[in-house]
């Protein structure tokens, strides 16, 4: 029997299939775009084809993410907060603080061993500190979003940009580019902007919590620049799972199995 987790987020749609031993049999991530139904269809087709299975092999399906209520064949929908907590606990059972930075949300989630959510904090109505923020900055700098991790190598940290507003940050970057500031300093400032904003959110969630065991999920966990700065601020090593952007769908699949 196989179990399906579907995470329809603001920027990507992810489908994960697991077997009864909690092993990932197949997974797929496609950009959500403007038509999330089609993205879901494509991701599902890919995931079935990769594993050579069909819908009748699926025992249960749990959906999560912003499009969770629009998945027609779901047995249940569960918030992405609970799914990310569930997914990460399977990789790192001791985690008590999960940082999840996705397309339009960044979250600090306090969890108990086993993945039960105790408390959480999310970004307010602004893209600053999220994946969308990185996308906007990548567009201004005309670089690929995946390059943020390597582009800041050797930076001195001489620049800083606003972490309050994406639009203001964009115009600050245009101004830095115009001043001829090196791209490594600008990307360093961008990564630091996300890290400091996320850090203040984690601080709120961890007042009086000792022995922090921190993990990170969501697409932004792929950006080593942000992760390294967060580690410096938290004075802790952050555990990153192999495919951090699939953790929500993986957690949903675990719920489907249960």
């Amino acid at each position: 029997m196989l179990y399906q987790g579907i995470d329809i987020g603001s920027s990507s749609c992810c489908v994960v299939i697991i077997n009864g031993k909690k092993e990932i049999v197949s997974s797929s991530v496609v950009p959500t775009g403007a038509r999330n139904f089609e993205a879901l269809k494509r991701a599902t087709r890919e995931v079935f084809e990769n594993a050579g299975i069909s819908e009748k092999d699926i025992g249960h399906t749990v959906s999560t993410g912003y499009g969770r209520e629009r998945v027609e064949n779901r047995d249940k929908d569960i918030s992405e907060i609970a799914c990310h907590a569930k997914g990460i606990s399977n990789y790192f059972p001791d985690t008590n603080l999960l940082i999840d930075i996705g397309g339009q949300d960044s979250k600090a989630i306090r969890i108990q061993p086993g993945g039960k959510v105790v408390d959480f904090s999310m970004n307010d109505k602004c893209a600053a500190g999220t994946g969308r923020f990185l996308e906007a900055m990548a567009r201004v700098l005309e670089v690929d979003i995946d390059q943020f991790e390597t582009l800041d190598a050797g930076a001195e940290g001489s620049q800083s940009i606003s972490n309050m507003c994406t639009v203001f940050a964009e115009s600050e970057i245009v101004s830095l580019v115009a001043q001829g500031i090196e791209i490594k300093e600008i990307t360093n400032a961008i990564n630091r902007s996300i890290a400091t904003r996320t850090f203040s959110m984690t601080k709120r969630m961890t007042i009086g919590v000792h022995n922090l065991s921190v993990a990170m999920s969501g697409g932004v966990a792929r950006n080593g620049g942000v992760v390294r700065m967060l580690e410096r601020l938290l004075k802790k090593k952050i555990a990153i799972p192999p495919e951090p952007d699939r953790i929500g769908a993986f957690g949903a699949a675990l719920f489907a199995m249960e």
Binding site: Y66, I81, S121, K125
Partner: peptide, 27 residues
């Protein structure tokens, strides 16, 4: 903690509020 406004609906985001409420119920 739910961010909104008592009278100005431009501050309210249904999707954001929905997912926070669901996570709260699960908690």
């Amino acid at each position: 903690i739910l961010e909104a406004d008592h009278n100005d609906s431009r501050i309210f985001s249904e999707e954001q509020v929905s997912s926070r409420l669901q996570a709260f119920a699960e908690m």
